[in-house]
Simulated scan of single mutants.
Amino acid sequence: MGILRSPKGEEQEKAKKEFIEALKVLEEELGDKPYFGGDNFGFLDLSFVAFYSWFYAMETLVNFDIEAECPKLIEWAKRCMEKKESVAKSLPDPLKIYDFALQMRKKLGLD
């Protein structure tokens, strides 16, 4: 995730902006549908929901709110987690992802 590897300051702000723009493209594609394929949970949902575990780390380490920027995308992710118990159980704990990202940033000398 490039946003997590960016040093603080101008470069990180640029990475954050690019990341939000990419999420907005996905949110636009989702539109008002419950899932990317329409009414049913599909392959694209399964592929992308795995990134939801990283959102907490990104928000905390880069200091922004994905839900404020892309509320429909967060609603979709929560719906995926609620409707598909097998998906929710298979994703890593966001706090463990945060700890990993924090260690990675320290190792790279970014914090």
Results as ranks from 00 to 15, higher is better:
E59G: 04
L4Y: 00
C80K: 00
G38P: 09
F41T: 14
I20P: 02
L23A: 07
L61R: 10
P92E: 04
A22C: 08
A57C: 05
S53C: 11
F19L: 10
P92H: 01
K17A: 03
I66F: 09
L91R: 03
K84A: 05
I66Q: 05
A22W: 05
A77F: 00
E28D: 09
L73D: 02
Y98S: 00
E21Y: 09
F51C: 12
S53I: 09
P92L: 06
I74C: 06
S47F: 14
K78R: 08
L91K: 03
L91G: 13
P71F: 12
I74K: 01
G9W: 00
D39Q: 14
E67I: 05
E21K: 13
C80M: 04
M81L: 12
E28R: 06
K72E: 00
Y56H: 09
K84E: 11
E11T: 04
E11D: 14
P92W: 01
D93W: 04
K17V: 11
R5E: 13
N63G: 05
A57I: 01
Q12I: 03
K33S: 07
K24V: 06
K14C: 03
S6Q: 04
K14F: 10
E10C: 03
V87Q: 08
L30W: 05
K16R: 07
L26N: 06
E29W: 08
D65E: 06
L73E: 05
A22F: 15
A15I: 13
L30K: 01
D32Y: 06
A88L: 04
S53E: 12
E13H: 00
S47E: 14
K72A: 03
F51Q: 15
G37M: 08
V49E: 02
E18R: 00
D65W: 05
E27Q: 06
I3W: 01
G9R: 05
E67M: 04
L26G: 02
S86T: 15
F55P: 15
W54P: 10
E13L: 02
S53N: 07
K16D: 10
E75Y: 14
R79S: 00
K89A: 08
E67F: 06
G42T: 15
E27T: 01
M58C: 05
E27I: 01
P92M: 13
D65V: 14
K96C: 10
K14S: 09
R5H: 12
L73K: 01
P7W: 07
Y56F: 12
K83P: 07
G9C: 04
A22L: 13
E10R: 03
K33P: 03
G31T: 11
P92S: 09
A22Y: 06
E82L: 08
Y56D: 14
Y56K: 08
